[in-house]
Design a binder for these strands. Structure first.
Lengths: 238, 238
DNA sequence: GTTGTTAAAATGTCTGACATTTAATAAGCT
DNA sequence: AGCTTATTAAATGTCAGACATTTTAACAAC
């Protein structure tokens, strides 16, 4: 694959990294392929070699590519990607063409992990956590069904789940909240939104909120499962 | 804190990054402190500014520091660290002075997550996974109690748990196997190893192996809990 | 045909100069 | 005095060019 199909580029090395990363994430290159060389990239986007090297350094850190002196740059396979790197989440957000295998993997992870996360949150949530959770829920409720507020609704949805991860007050679990945004956006892009399913989804979210508020770990576990079951239906993963 | 207390440095930017990272991980600087400036670091370790910048770029990517033009380099707090970055795991392995709060956080994560991981492994493990798991267990058994084979024993222990993460065949869970090495090494350094506890630990590991082999998800869940309970005792977290 | 040498091509490194951003300082006005 | 505005200093960011190193491939010699 060549560079010609990629969109134009205005701005620094970060922007270039994002551009190239998103191309990799959507499968513009196959694992094992040789990636374009520094000078070609620099020529194509009219940027200095420095910028290219900085961008490629980010991609390397994220496990997307592998560089060796003399040989060149190779594209790594999906299993090597550092999915939990915050940069990856940033690059993935808003990608409609995200590999379905990846979307399913992230969902499978959430499905297995979030009941436990909800349990921990029910044990450890502070008053402040509850307040944030309620605010996020209220935001979801108000923006539900309004086509003009879809972006807002997504953000409140992400915030709701992220607060739960944060409420575990565990340094490791907290890192994983990053996966939520790309995952939830992928969901929204792939599912239809009639009033009935939205209302059902809201109800299930409220059950999670109530359980965490009550400190009922078993109820939180179950309620989180119900939310994800709803999600699975919407995604067509059954 | 100054650079003077740090060990000497031979080799490339990666080595320098590791050196500085380990200093940060063991609390040589407090969050919010200003980190030494590029030129000072370069002068102190007799390396080019390039090497310093590359090293600091790694630390930035890992969330350990934060750099802004004009202001300088600031040390970030533990909550901002990217604990799931593979580089972090590499930097943490073998650190005896690792912050106890961090060790406890990682352990608490494992305690909440690994039963679920074991469940998934019991569902998804292939014949090859089982073979690897048995090999790791056999390695643990043979090297148990032999003071000359302590390093080996650690590696087999890490491998045992890592295989379980791998056996979930989930791209996200697989990433988290990286946390095991630093976590297990921290455990070994902090606990005493009489024959009795070692034997008990081995037995509990075998129960996990058997449950996964049998595809019994509930047994795997319980057995994983038992292994971690043993670990908790050894760590003094009760 | 195998082996050793050479040449090309890619990434990695060094250096010095310059740009940009930020914070502190000093000047100048009301 | 107090506030605003230039100036300066110091740090990181960027650039350009030369050079080093590593790998692959071509080619020659035996």
């Amino acid at each position: 694959m060549t560079l010609d199909t990629l969109p134009a580029h205005h701005g620094g090395a970060e922007h270039l990294a994002r551009l190239l990363a998103r191309a990799l994430l959507t499968g513009h290159w196959q694992p094992g392929d040789v990636f374009p060389k520094e000078l070609d990239i620099g020529k194509h986007f009219a940027v200095s070699r420095n910028q290219v090297r900085n961008a490629l350094a980010s991609l390397t850190a994220a496990g997307l590519i592998e560089r060796t002196a003399g040989r060149g740059t190779l594209v790594r396979e999906m299993g090597e990607w550092h999915l939990l790197d915050p940069l990856m989440s940033e690059w993935m957000t808003g990608l409609v063409n995200l590999d379905p295998q990846l979307v399913r993997a992230i969902y499978a992870f959430r499905f297995s992990a979030e009941p436990t996360v909800a349990r921990l949150a029910a044990q450890a949530a502070t008053g402040d956590d509850i307040t944030q959770l309620e605010a996020a829920f209220e935001g979801m409720r108000c923006s539900a069904g309004n086509p003009d507020a879809r972006a807002q609704h997504i953000e409140f949805d992400v915030a709701f789940h992220d607060v739960i991860y944060q409420a575990t007050h565990n340094l490791v679990w907290r890192q994983m909240g990053h996966l939520l945004r790309p995952s939830i956006m992928a969901l929204v892009y792939r599912s239809q939104h009639d009033i009935k399913t939205l209302d059902d989804s809201l109800t299930r979210h409220r059950h999670v909120l109530d359980a965490i508020k009550a400190g009922d770990v078993n109820a939180a576990d179950n309620a989180a499962r119900e939310v994800l079951r709803r999600t699975a239906i919407d995604l067509g993963i059954v």
